[in-house]
């Protein structure tokens, strides 16, 4: 009983156990689910969610939310082929340029939140709407194919049998966990999320950290957009849209409080894998689009009820 109680108070561990259980049961009951190829595919999909959710985790830890992450991913996926110059066979210039743009968009979110005093939820929602309109004007609404070598390698390449995207995710994970738990700035993010007034009175600049955190979120959304483009080999309007819900869900499933100040990226990682695994299970069940949508929403709600509940306020 005591062990169970301790477990319930440790959401990252709880989510990890949940994901292992789901994977083991699904592998034993469904043929081919547990094969190396399929598990690698699940990890590749989880890498995309995990990387967007890295930015989302930082923003939520500071008490904000980023509803524009999906739109930033779409911007990246559509603009990258247009911005990759033909004289650069590696494609790295295009990646650097597009990541700068993604970071700039995130920075603008932060500027709206910090300097104009617009609540993050409105700022990012308005940004998403703005980008949606801008994209159709710029790209004309048609799908674009990618020829950028570096992007295709990131999306489909392998190193010693491990997908490049998963390796990239591992790097991002280590960096974000170190940032949150081993660096002073991570502590300041948490402090601002827990109690902005107290943190400010202790000399932490809200403006500066809001700008940094949203710029980082834009950056990570950009990286995720590059990955999804490399996997699909095509970018189209709406490609990043599903990732708004999944990135937020991954963060909350991992035990991070949506109110900010409490949580860790170490929980978001199993959260992302759990989401992809359950979505894969839904695809196995042969159902119509309507039922799939219902199952997806219900499963997320059900998973959140297990590990994403807020403490009682009274």
């Amino acid at each position: 009983m005591n062990v169970l109680g301790k477990l319930m108070r440790n959401p990252p561990l709880l989510t990890l156990i949940l994901v292992v259980a789901v994977l083991v049961i699904a592998s034993l009951t469904l043929r081919g689910f547990g094969s190396y190829g399929h598990l690698r595919y699940i990890m590749e999909l989880a890498a995309v969610i995990g990387i967007v959710a890295a930015g989302q985790t930082l923003v939520i830890l500071m008490g904000g939310i980023d509803l524009s992450a999906g739109a930033i991913m779409t911007v990246t996926a559509i603009m990258l082929p247009l911005l990759s110059p033909a004289f650069d066979p590696t494609g790295l210039i295009g990646i650097v340029v597009i990541l700068a743009i993604a970071t700039l968009i995130g920075f603008l979110n932060g500027a709206g939140a910090a300097w104009l005093g617009v609540p993050p939820i409105i700022m990012t929602l308005a940004m998403a709407t703005f980008l949606q309109g801008l994209l159709v004007i710029v790209a004309g609404g048609s799908a674009v194919s990618v020829t950028n070598a570096a992007v295709i390698w990131l999306g489909q390449g392998r190193l010693f049998g491990i997908s490049a995207s998963v390796i990239l995710w591992a790097v991002v994970s280590v960096a974000v966990i170190v940032l949150i738990h081993r660096m002073p700035i991570g502590g300041r993010f948490l402090a601002l999320g827990a109690n902005p007034v107290a943190a400010q009175l202790s000399g932490v600049s809200v403006t500066r950290h809001t700008l940094i955190v949203f710029a980082l979120s834009g950056f990570f959304a950009g990286v995720a957009g590059i990955l999804i483009l490399g996997m699909n080999r095509q970018g189209y309007v709406g490609i990043g849209e599903p990732y708004v819900l999944t990135s937020i869900a991954a963060v909350v499933l991992g035990g991070t409080s949506i109110l900010g100040g409490r949580g860790t990226y170490a929980g978001t990682i199993p959260g992302a894998i759990l989401l992809v695994t359950t979505t894969a299970l839904i695809t196995v069940v042969n159902a119509s689009a309507g039922w799939r949508s219902i199952m997806f929403g219900t499963l997320i709600l059900g998973l959140l009820l297990i590990s994403g509940r807020e403490a009682r306020s009274r």
Binding site: I258, G290, S293, G297, L301, L304, R309
Partner: peptide, 26 residues
């Protein structure tokens, strides 16, 4: 009563309700 934040509940519900609408009239 189950103390989940409104923003996530309604975001997840948007998939459920949208799914029901698709079943009622595909």
């Amino acid at each position: 009563y189950l103390r989940l934040p409104a923003i996530i509940v309604t975001l997840a519900s948007s998939f459920i309700i949208g799914g029901i609408a698709l079943i009622v009239l595909p």
